[in-house]
C-alpha cells in the first residue's frame, strides 16, 4: 500500500558535473561528482546516505534540498518534476524541502537574534502577520527543547547542541514534508549527539517528516535510518533496507567501511588486550 503512494522525493539518474577551470599549465576539465544516482524516499521514512569525504554525498544532499541543480537526470518532489535551473523554486516548493547543515557554528548568522533566525523563512515565503510569526517561533523553540525566553538571544550564547536545535527549528518553521540533514550530529559531543538524535526521532513521529540523512558514521545510520545508500566516488555502490545492509553488506566498499568502524564490543576488547599481553610477554621472554 505504502509502495503505491507517491514518494516524497525521488531521483532518477541524477548526474552532477563540476567544471575545474584551466590555467596556463593545464586545460580545464569536467569532474563528474555524481554518476547517475537513483533513489526514492516514502513519507515518514529516513534514507541515510553514507560515504567518505569526496564521495559526492553532500553534493547529492544539496541537489535534493534544491540548492544546486543537477547536470542531468530528474528530481521529483511529491511526484512533480523539479528543475531549479529552469525555474527558481517558489515559496510553495521551498516550504516542502528544508535543510539542516553540519556545522551549527557556521550556519547561523552571528548578528541575527534566534527569534529572527526562526521568523525569516516566514517573512520570505509567507504573508503571516508579525504577531503570529512570533507566536509560531516561540512555539517552535519549545518543540525543539529550548525556552521562549531564548527568542532574543544571539547564537554565540548557545552551546553546539542548542545551536543545532535552533537550526532544526528554523528548518521546521515552514512545515516542510522533507528535511535534508547533512551530517547534523557529527560536530557534536557524544552525549549531545544522543539528545539531538532523540529530538529528530520525536519530531519525525510528530510531524510525519521524511528525512534524507547524510552521514559518515555507520553507528548513527544504524540508529536512525530505514533505508541506506552507500555512495563512493559518485556512484551508489549499495542500496537497501537498514536490516539487510547491516546484516549482510554486499559491496566490497561497504564491507571495508564496516571493517574500519571501531568495535566497542567487550569480547573484541578482551581479544585485543590478550593479544597485546602475549606480544609483550614474547618480547620480554
Amino acid at each position: 500500500m505504502m509502495g503505491q503512494d507517491i514518494p516524497v522525493v525521488e531521483g532518477r539518474a541524477i548526474v552532477r558535473d563540476y567544471h575545474v577551470p584551466g590555467s596556463i599549465f593545464a586545460r580545464g576539465r569536467d569532474v563528474r561528482a555524481l554518476k547517475g544516482i537513483d533513489f526514492r524516499v516514502d513519507k515518514g521514512k529516513t534514507l541515510a546516505i553514507v560515504g567518505e569525504s569526496g564521495s559526492g554525498k553532500s553534493t547529492l544532499a544539496r541537489i535534493i534540498a534544491l540548492i544546486d541543480a543537477p547536470t542531468g537526470g530528474e528530481l521529483r518532489i511529491a511526484g512533480e518534476a523539479v528543475d531549479i535551473h529552469r525555474r527558481r523554486p517558489g515559496p510553495a516548493l521551498r516550504s516542502k524541502v528544508q535543510m539542516v547543515f553540519q556545522n551549527p557554528y557556521g550556519s547561523l548568522n552571528p548578528r541575527q537574534k534566534v527569534g529572527d533566525v526562526l521568523m525569516e523563512p516566514l517573512v520570505i515565503n509567507t504573508s503571516i502577520p508579525a504577531t503570529e510569526r512570533r507566536d509560531r517561533a516561540e512555539a517552535m523553540l519549545k518543540k525543539v527543547g529550548l525556552q521562549p525566553e531564548h527568542f532574543n538571544r544571539y547564537p554565540h550564547m548557545f552551546s553546539g547542541g542548542q545551536r543545532q536545535r535552533i537550526a532544526i527549528a528554523r528548518a521546521l518553521m515552514l512545515n516542510p514534508s522533507l528535511l535534508v540533514l547533512d551530517e547534523p550530529v557529527s560536530a557534536l559531543d557524544l552525549s549531545v549527539q544522543a539528545q539531538v538524535l532523540n529530538l529528530l526521532a520525536d519530531l519525525q513521529d510528530e510531524f510525519e517528516l521524511t528525512y534524507v540523512f547524510v552521514s559518515h558514521d555507520l553507528s548513527v545510520v544504524r540508529y536512525i535510518a530505514d533505508d541506506v545508500m552507500v555512495i563512493s566516488k559518485g556512484e551508489a555502490v549499495e542500496q537497501g533496507s537498514r536490516e539487510a545492509l547491516f546484516a549482510n553488506p554486499q559491496h566490497p566498499y561497504t564491507q571495508s567501511l564496516f571493517a574500519a568502524t571501531p568495535v566497542t564490543d567487550v569480547e573484541a576488547i578482551r581479544t585485543r588486550v590478550a593479544r597485546r599481553k602475549a606480544a609483550r610477554a614474547a618480547v620480554a621472554g
Binding site: L190, S191, Q193, A194, Q195, L197, N198, A201, D217, S219, V220, R222, Y223, I224, T264, V266, I269
Partner: peptide, 29 residues
Amino acid sequence: FEAPQHPYTRALLSALPEHATGDRLPTVS
C-alpha cells in the same frame, strides 16, 4: 567497558548509538 563504575562513564557508553536498545538513546542527563 565491562563494568564502568562512574555514572558519567556509563552514560557515555550507553549514548553510543550502537548500544541503543530501545527507540531512544539514553543521554548523560
